[in-house]
Write a protein that binds this DNA or RNA. Sequence first.
DNA 1: TCTTGACCTTCCCGTAACTGGAACCCTTAT
DNA 2: ATAAGGGTTCCAGTTACGGGAAGGTCAAGA
Lengths: 127, 127
Amino acid sequence: MNISEVAKVTDLSVKTIRYYEEIGLVTPHRSSNGYRSFDKRETHKLQFLASARALGFSIENCRSLLALWVDRSRASADVKQIAQDHLTEIEEKIISLRDMQITLQNLVRACAGDARPDCPILQGLSK
Amino acid sequence: MNISEVAKVTDLSVKTIRYYEEIGLVTPHRSSNGYRSFDKRETHKLQFLASARALGFSIENCRSLLALWVDRSRASADVKQIAQDHLTEIEEKIISLRDMQITLQNLVRACAGDARPDCPILQGLSK
DNA sequence: TCTTGACCTTCCCGTAACTGGAACCCTTAT
DNA sequence: ATAAGGGTTCCAGTTACGGGAAGGTCAAGA
């Protein structure tokens, strides 16, 4: 499969796939004309990467997960550790965003949002 | 005030303050020795910026908010618009993170996390 | 006076994970 | 012959700074 076809089935952009090759996540063969050629295995890797990225794993975590995925003798504990750590990060981000949300909601609610200059939002920010 | 002192009172890093000057958010005077010298006004701007950044506003939004802040003839509607848009972004991020969280929680729960290779997390990612 | 240490300066590189664009090659159809 | 629609590489830009080098400035102590 050529790159644009793989892009379609994996729902990744052509640019992204080239980037993943550049950083060593996939290693497609090359046709005689120099075009990348993706077999089933490399395509499946890209699908795996797409799923992991969709769950917010960093590229480096994806690299680790991919290595565990191809390693038949892995321990599931190693996978779980990565996932658990990532989950913790997600929870922290949610908490941080929620704090911002609450503060902002209060400011927005208090602001008339009309033509007058008085603005509780700006007041809140200048303290 | 010299830069390190301002850094302390604003709780911004020295690097960050220099960066804010570079992109035109603040314009400190210079002492005869070339050191930056922050008066009350510039220091207050930095405090404003620190608050806005803490609420997750982008630098460009901070620039707009700062302009409205110094503009005595602003309409509070303009401020509210920026805040409301940002609030929407935050809500979208939270939703996205919560989706990831739920999916990941299910995978992590299903994974034994022991020495065996069987791993529902990897299975979930390879679909 | 000299030196030491703590300031300050500018300048340049690196980060994450790509995206956009330029310049150019390959293939197929008209 | 040419045009359209693939493909290729390489370079620059994105966000909001942080790290570090090379070097000027200042106040205090020996």
